[in-house]
Computed example of a mutant assay.
Amino acid sequence: MKQNFTVRHGALDGVEAFLSVAQHRSFRRAAAELGVTPSAISQAIRALEARVGAALFIRTTRSVGLTEAGERFLARARPAFEELIAASGAARELGQRPAGLLRLTVPRSVVPILLEPVVASFCRAFPEIEVELAASEELVDLAAGGFDAGIRMGQFITPDMVAVRLTKPLPLIIVGSPVYLAHRGRPERPDDLREHACLRLRRSNGALASWSLNDNGRSIEIAVSGPFIAYDFPTMLGAAVEGVGLAQVPAPLAAGAMASGKLVHVLEQFAPMTPGVFLYYPGHRQIMPKLRAFIDHVKGRSGAIS
């Protein structure tokens, strides 16, 4: 059966004083080492003995020795205290220089258009930092998931997060393969989309995303229909390349396929702008050097990811 263990408040008080006295066999030398008075050392030891429930030292006017209880306490307390000191040092080191594991949650679509150009150079610039990317469309809880930061489209980031811009605002464009357009025709107006096979995206909350367009400054939403539903932009884009239907995706994601002639941009004048892509993290959390280094690095290479 699982047991619950707790450390009582003040349970570690006096342990450092005990270890110093045990090492020097002297309250006076222990006090000098710790920079306190011998009286303070005596009080700390008496309080520790009271909590432990046993005398830890044998005191005479000429010497200080350990009781059997003190010997047992020393055998367990010394390595444990040394581990605590080492743990504090390791944590302090991570708080003072860029090192350790940097965990980021990102959508799949962000990996090729944002991170591949900068992660390799970041790893070379900071060899003591390990970068872990968790590609997921879920808007995960950063703290619960153990992530240092996340990367998302700006419209999906909650107001309580600190957001750092990674790209300029991006257009959402509609694309289709030449084969599909030759068969179904090219849409000329937003209403034409109702007669087309439109590939749809299911959000992490289960809802199907409508398509957003901009008609002379007026934002419109169209509930499209089609034969294929995806959970991320790269999958939807792949279906569009295969001629399954039209897809609405962030422009940088489709740039390669358009350049190679696999996809064609349609309804260009109706493409809406999105806020762009941002790195985000909790505002109340102190920025660790590893995250600060990553933020500064991607800012310095903004030309590679915009």
Rank of each mutant, 00 (worst) to 15 (best):
P127V: 04
D232G: 08
A254R: 03
P250E: 03
R189F: 08
H183D: 06
R189Q: 10
N216D: 15
G10P: 12
F156Q: 03
I151W: 04
K299L: 15
P117V: 02
F122N: 09
H183A: 03
V111M: 00
V266G: 08
V7F: 13
G176S: 05
I220W: 07
I174L: 10
P289V: 10
L170I: 15
E71Y: 02
I113F: 00
R152D: 06
H284A: 13
F5I: 05
T60V: 09
V36I: 15
K299C: 07
A207I: 12
E68H: 01
V164M: 08
Q286L: 13
R285S: 11
H183Q: 07
I113M: 02
P187W: 04
G283T: 07
L48P: 10
A11I: 00
T158G: 14
R189E: 10
F147K: 00
A247G: 09
L133F: 04
L201P: 09
S136A: 12
S109C: 02
G150F: 01
E82A: 13
L34W: 04
H9Y: 09
T274Q: 13
A182I: 05
A30C: 13
I157M: 05
A247W: 02
R202F: 05
Q3I: 11
S260F: 05
L115E: 00
K168G: 08
L104H: 01
E68T: 09
A47C: 11
E137M: 10
A30W: 10
R72M: 08
S306Q: 14
R76T: 04
R51T: 09
E128H: 08
A239D: 09
L94Q: 14
A259E: 10
G14I: 09
R108M: 02
E137F: 02
A257V: 03
L142R: 03
I129P: 00
P187E: 03
L208W: 11
L193P: 03
R51E: 08
L12V: 00
L102H: 11
F81T: 02
L133A: 07
G70L: 05
A47V: 07
C198H: 06
E138P: 01
G206Q: 04
T60F: 07
I129W: 01
P190R: 04
A91E: 15
E16L: 02
I229V: 14
A55D: 14
A125D: 10
T158F: 06
M1K: 12
C123D: 06
S306A: 14
D296R: 10
A255D: 05
V7D: 09
R186E: 12
A55R: 15
A90C: 03
V266Q: 09
A40L: 10
G89K: 08
A251G: 08
R62A: 14
A22D: 11
A143R: 04
T167Y: 05
T158I: 13
I129E: 01
R46A: 13
T158Q: 15
G283H: 06
G261F: 02
R25D: 11
I58E: 15
Q3E: 10
E138S: 02
E68N: 07
L193Q: 05
D191A: 07
Y231L: 14
I85W: 05
F27C: 10
V224C: 15
S63K: 13
R184G: 01
G226F: 04
V162P: 00
